[in-house]
Design a protein around this nucleic acid. Structure first.
Lengths: 371, 371
DNA sequence: AGCGGGCTTGAATCTAAGC
DNA sequence: AGCTTAGATTCAAGCCCGC
């Protein structure tokens, strides 16, 4: 389904996020990132958290009226977001203890399927000045698929590479947005109270989207999502009701340069590689029929047949089936299980497959930039 | 208000938690710690890459029909818990993304006032075997006061002492409950699928309660809350519906020895607080509160307190300060000065510190991002 | 919708073997 | 005997995908 003609790609829409979302076609968005306002002031205006004011604001919270209004607001925008998401799309929502529990419960009620809650641990949080609580040193992100049936995107290998080749955990240590990255007005004051660090969005988009995916941010603010999306060669659609924020976001995106095309292809997982049939290796002479295969410890063995199946006594079948059968395992990856002898050493079939793959698709050289 | 005559102090009540709570008088509890069923909704078996089977939580007590049934259950027990709490009481609830958002929203709906969400970062979580999500490496605790008007207890200085004299943050790094602390049946299998580490309860109770406070755990399980409460000279009331769990908890509490009376008083809020990480050793059970320390020649001695300071007659302070005070020295390295007896021999604190460091080696920090 | 190819694991504790 | 090391085991898990 290609919606690109109907979509305002790489644009910032000025206005209310629910009204704007209602104008977009269903199923057209691959990923939503949302940093919703967490508090409703008395006049119905939405405010973002400003840590230095939290204590003062808390005391005036009318819990029943405000919770109810906040829930209605949350159901409205999350419902629209779900309509816009493609079948396999995912959503990220960030919040603090003031609002994240209500958001999580409503996500579940609407049929979203939570995949992880991810903790952004701030390396430089604001201290608790009054010494009455623990230092509030984190925010919570919820990552959810549109439904339990969604075959969502997760770039496992890219995340692992980002983390010293160890699985990425659900707690991320990142500094607050400060210094040159922080947008400021003419008086040197921060333009937006809760500007998110680009590193956070970098990791979010790298984990759960592909180049050319369409990412929607219904509360764009000063455009961190848009800037990082453009940098990583994803499309974005931003919605922001505050003209000054929207203007800042537009300028920020305009200054952003996409990274070279060949560098956005993040570490491909083995799942993404084209499938090679073992039989094709026999066919192409990379391994001869009659070759004796063994496991790593030479405990079991089997013989390669001309059609690419294996023979082991009464057992006959694929490299996976025979491996599983001989080890009484429910399943077996024959590519890594079976070995053959070359120059006196045992070599895994996977080595042959890698060679075959390289032959099929040589690594791409640098490609020209469009436009 | 003294309810102690009406209360089943230091007892384990066998039965449904809501029914049991209904029998207790209003306003009689200082602190609730609750580890309710998580409503995990596992969809099938999970195998490791080596085909071994993961032993998940498939117990009947974790089965609920749908979110609505779980919400009704949650409102019932949280409502009773709120009735039992004293005006200034607080509650801790621990959960994962499967249930914690519903619990947080219901806490707010019932009028509780959230003070912090605290992240238990697991130093040794189970990996994500299929590589389809981030490693689920944390659980979330919500700490809330009975109402916005509660003048709740927070032992700021004790928490600071536990954390190298820096404000305690909202993310806590602690290992899972394993090894000798884990209760096992005759076959060596874990007695309870979700036994919490004592270090977690140590920090919770030290942060938010005083000696002689009454702590209620409506889902006692195998009694971690009860054991740590007794050790720290708090009273507990435990409720557990599963007879085998309750029995294990009772035996466990019976084996528990309260620390010496003079050592449970937490650090007074002094400006020159001890500069130590020694407190974390106490918290994690590497050295017990109440342990008598001596110098190498057994000339002086002091007692370990739960927050990691030492008591020696009128002297009280860090391991360094008390060592210096007792020897009339201007300064003293408490790590090498103080010893305790193990297997008849004197062992320096420094030995413990090395062990603790190895155990708590944190995951790698953020690396510079590519591009 | 079922079948089967084939992709997927970190930290800590404990035991047994080796030196 | 005492120390080191390799291997086995375990931990609240809503853990695959395409033909």
């Amino acid at each position: 389904m290609d919606h690109s003609r109907d979509l305002p790609l790489d644009q910032v829409l000025l206005g209310d996020c629910v009204e704007m979302m209602q104008m977009l076609p269903s199923g057209s968005i691959d990923c939503v990132f949302a940093d919703p306002p967490y508090n409703l002031q008395l006049r119905g205006e939405l405010r973002r958290p400003d840590d230095s004011l939290v204590d003062g604001v808390d005391d005036e919270w009318d819990k029943f009226g405000d919770f109810d209004a906040y829930d209605r607001f949350t159901r409205a925008w999350l419902g629209e977001a779900r309509r816009l998401l493609a079948k396999d799309g995912t959503i990220w929502v960030i919040g603090s203890y003031h609002n994240i529990f209500r958001i999580g419960a409503i996500l579940q009620d609407l049929g979203f399927w939570i995949l992880n809650d991810v903790i952004w641990r701030k390396s430089n949080p604001m201290p608790n000045f009054r010494g009455r609580r623990f230092t509030n040193a984190h925010e919570t992100m919820i990552w959810a698929a549109r439904s339990p049936q969604s075959r969502y995107r997760f770039n496992y290998q890219a995340m692992k590479s980002l983390n010293d080749d160890i699985q990425m955990r659900s707690d991320w240590l990142l500094p607050l947005c400060t210094g040159g990255e922080r947008l400021r007005n003419d008086h040197g004051l921060k333009l937006h109270p809760t500007q998110k660090p680009e590193a956070l969005l970098h990791r979010v988009l790298l984990a759960s989207t592909l180049p050319d995916d369409v990412i929607l941010d219904p509360f764009l603010g000063t455009g961190t999502t848009a800037a990082v999306a453009r940098r990583l060669r994803r499309f974005f659609i931003g919605i922001e009701r505050h003209p000054a924020y929207a203007e800042a976001a537009i300028g920020r995106v305009r200054r952003e340069r996409p990274v070279p095309l060949e560098s956005v292809a993040t570490s491909p997982g083995r799942r993404d590689a084209p499938r090679i049939a073992f039989g094709s290796l026999v066919e192409r002479g990379l391994i001869a029929a009659g070759t004796v295969l063994t496991d790593r410890n030479r405990r079991v063995q089997a013989v390669v047949t001309p059609d690419g199946s294996l023979n082991a006594g009464a057992l006959r079948g694929s490299i996976h089936q025979v491996g599983a059968g001989l080890t009484n395992a429910p399943s077996c990856n024959g590519w890594t299980f079976w070995h053959f002898e070359r120059d006196g050493a045992l070599v895994a079939l996977d080595v042959l497959r890698a060679a075959a793959l390289a032959e099929l698709s040589p690594p791409p050289g640098p490609r020209p930039l469009p436009g």
